[in-house]
Amino acid sequence: MNDSKSPTRCAGAPRDRANGRRVMLWSIGWATTMLLASAAISFDQFGDGTVAFIAAGVSLIFGAGTVGAYRQFLNETDELRQKVELEALAVAFGFGVVGGMAYAQISRALGLGDPRLAIVIAGMLIVHAIGVAVGMRRYA
């Protein structure tokens, strides 16, 4: 190994940071456009729905961009990180399906009204973040 090759030659970390930043920017864009779309739907409820339709479409584009950016992050990241992400995604998916169904049944049983999808999605995101943190710690 040539000593002149410093650890900065490692393509993993800077590439991961750049890809991670891209995921974050797309996510912020998606969250922002989703809030704007929700507001547009509320304000446009007596209109013909054109504004709400366009706002929802823009949000969908940002959502697709977020998924694409995350997919790129997963494909280009280090293989240990891929394993950590896969395990975290599995737990988050399980939480979404099992927890979401339980939440829906409890909501109906207790007469709390329709379950809110946003709560399930927020829960999945939190579980995924915890799963990544636990995985990174486990392999540290």
Binding site: M1, K5, P7, R9, G12, A13, E79, K83
Partner: peptide, 30 residues
């Protein structure tokens, strides 16, 4: 070879954490 984990990680283009996990047997490589 008197290499650090960071140097080996740089050569292999993986994270230092991956090298550490490989060395401790917590992770098997592809």
């Amino acid at each position: 070879r008197d290499w650090t984990q960071a140097q080996l990680a740089a050569e292999l283009e993986v994270s230092r954490q991956t090298v550490n996990a490989l060395e401790t047997g917590k992770f098997d490589p592809s």
